[in-house]
Design a protein around this nucleic acid. Sequence first.
DNA 1: AAACACTCCAACCGCGACACC
DNA 2: AGGTGTCGCGGTTGGAGTGTT
Length: 254
Amino acid sequence: MGRTPCCDKTKVKRGQWSPEEDEILKNYILKYGTSAGNWITLPHRAGLKRCGKSCRLRWLNYLRPDIKLGNFTREEDNIICSLYTQLGSRWSIIASKLPGRTDNDVKNHWNTKLKKKLLTPNANNFDDSKQVFHSSSMIPKEEEQQAAYSPIQFPFPNWDSAGFSSILNNNKNMVQHDQKQFPLSRFTQDYSKISTSREESMIFGSSSVEMHENIDLAWFNTFEGFPMGDEIMGAGIWNQQSVLEDIDFPVTFS
DNA sequence: AAACACTCCAACCGCGACACC
DNA sequence: AGGTGTCGCGGTTGGAGTGTT
């Protein structure tokens, strides 16, 4: 037995909303609010031949007075990408961090713009002045993937080669970043065995950083500014898709 | 100018969660 | 405790608009 439909679809209008319908719905909700009754009965009360769910969606995504229209800013892009890497497609939560944006907005923006940016292979865009990776630089070029001997490759956010080299050359128990140190225990590997050979390097946009050949697990959870979720697993050279699926770090767009 | 391809986004759909009886 | 109704979410789709050939 299937789910009972929320309304008789043969008796309700579907598709694009007309300006008149918008006006009726907007006036009704501004006058009576959305809590007087429920969404299912609202269209009848307001005199609309629409499904209640359709009314709800129209109000939330388009008619609400606090809706923010227009292009997404770079800052908003940053927030979306950062939260997406942490939360995945939890659009309502992501949208709640962007005043005036709806989950549908954010989802559409991600699907049509941001996801494509991420999937465009174009390394060497590391912006040293800002210490950020541009979206398109996060995924190493194919030839760079093949040229590197390292069993895994992934770009670290906000890390330059000098910062990471401190692991190798200075305190082998701590990682240094932005004048702060973080315990190496967050990495599962024994860093006393770190190799400095170039052929076991990781690609950092235009930079490369020596890494131990067997490193296959990293944990960013405690890094200040990057409230990350789970472990990052790497096995073999990641392709673009697996990077998108597996990696977990914030992104800054140009 | 016409046909086709592609992009973008509003709207729809189905499902899980939750509240209420 | 279980059934029913509603809400809210995320995935998907349809079609208008735009670009390309």
